[in-house]
Simulated assay, not measured.
Amino acid sequence: MIGLNDIQDARSRIVGHIISTPLVCSPALSDICGVAVGLKLEHYQTTGSFKLRGATNAILELSEAERARGVVAASTGNHGRALSHAARAVGSRATICMSRLVPENKVSEVRRLGADVRIIGNSQDDAQEEVERLVAENGLVMLPAFDHPAIVAGQGTIGLEIVEAMPDVTTVLVPLSGGGLAAGVAAAVKALRPNAKVIGLTMERGAAMKASLDAGGPVLVEEFPSLADSLGGGIGLDNKVTFATCRALLDDVVLLSEREIAAGIRHAYAREREILEGAGAVGIAALIANKIAVLRGPVALVLSGRNIDMDMHRRIVNGMSNSVGQET
């Protein structure tokens, strides 16, 4: 598993390439929960999500020869955007494979950054098959969205910053998909504050890490459209890093309905004055829906991304039906 030294090395490597985001108090959530609640504003990163940390760390670990070959990844959008940005910054080129479930606003941003975009199939697993073909046939270097030591270590730098900003943190709420963010944050927080609880948050439908943890090993899941589209996709049947780390370090996994996620997006906008995508709002959603069984404070929650289609955002904050067929 990734250790504290790996995360500290990643921090030294990516400093100057990413933003050390603020952790700010939320008076509204603190009043609702009865404990101090801090928001880690990771959606302030240059590419609009935390993914820039891991992607930058992974790119900077490559040799010049590897960068010259080009990098490739499957993505639900935010990793693709981050990897494209990081690759362009060092003179490399990214190829990003995405399924038809990825929102167009995320696809267009990846293209804007100069990546070669491939739209493949209806799932993250379909996109991953194209990645593996490109690695085998074209010699590209695969830098996956989550199951890679350098990616996990880069995301873990968020955990270092949380503990520095909130030394007495007792509960950390982290969005959970393939587990790169949750594994990295948990590794950092548990190394520095062993008694703190780290809880993963994800959507009810197609929660691959939750299903895998329940099964005792990686399993395939069907993907569904969701407001938390960034949390979709499998964890890989040959998962080498994130499954074991999440199994060892996460204290709980909480599932959220589409209605609850929408309520989190609305609260973020109306009370926190923040625009968040569904995945970025799951921490808020869990708190206002009272989904954390035993809540001890101070609490830190990671607002992981802001890359939502703004037409959808307007529909959600106005209480209208969303585009995934769920009432909000």
Rank of each mutant, 00 (worst) to 15 (best):
I151F: 04
V141K: 02
A153F: 10
T170A: 15
L160P: 03
L160G: 01
A153Y: 05
L173D: 08
L134V: 10
I158P: 01
A165H: 11
I158A: 14
D147P: 07
V141M: 02
H148R: 07
V163K: 09
A150P: 00
E161K: 07
A136P: 02
V169H: 10
T170C: 14
M166Q: 12
V135C: 14
E161Y: 04
V174R: 05
I162E: 04
A145N: 12
I151G: 03
L140C: 05
V152Q: 08
G154E: 02
H148W: 08
T171N: 10
V163M: 08
Q155E: 14
D147T: 07
G159T: 02
L160M: 01
P144D: 08
E161F: 05
F146M: 11
G154R: 01
G139N: 10
T157R: 05
L143C: 00
A150M: 12
P144A: 11
V141Q: 04
D168M: 13
M142T: 00
A145I: 12
F146W: 11
L140G: 01
E137W: 00
A145Q: 11
T170M: 12
I162A: 05
V141D: 01
E161R: 07
A150K: 14
V163T: 05
G159S: 02
A145H: 13
L173Q: 10
F146D: 02
G156D: 09
V172C: 09
P144N: 11
I151M: 13
A145G: 14
I158Y: 04
